[in-house]
Amino acid sequence: MIEKLLLSFLFCGAVCLIAQVILDNTKLTPGHITSIFVIIGALLDTFSIYDVIVEKVGGGAMVPITSFGHQLIHGGLQQAQGMGVFGLVMGMFDLTASGISAAIIFSFFLTLIFKPRN
């Protein structure tokens, strides 16, 4: 329990640290970096490395944007077991659907309620 909390702090902090170092030392914008990190997450899960990290670290590995890429390919590969390439397309959003739907719903209704600041 406590060990997972500590590992979550260290892992999520380390990912953010790497991103910040890239942001400060190159001309890349946050948009570039989040896209790159999603690709890295998908790449790490191609050979099930990210699964091991999630198993060990827990929530700290699910919070960074790398886990978005991981969940995309993970859902795709789950469906692809029986369906092949078409399963890859069908199952792509299986695991991330909740996050994307929630983000759309919350931002829509909150936009209706609140006014833009500054």
Binding site: M1, K4, L5, S8, F9, L10, F11, C12, G13, A14, V15, C16, L17, A19, Q20, V21, D24, N25, V57, G58, G59, G60, M62, V63, P64
Partner: peptide, 25 residues
């Protein structure tokens, strides 16, 4: 400022990860 930025990103990012795991539990 770079090293300060990096430290701040590490601490805040770590706290967000900590909150994530804490909420799961």
């Amino acid at each position: 400022t770079r090293s300060k930025n990096a430290l701040v990103a590490f601490l805040i990012g770590g706290v967000v990860g900590l909150i994530g795991e804490g909420l799961i539990q």
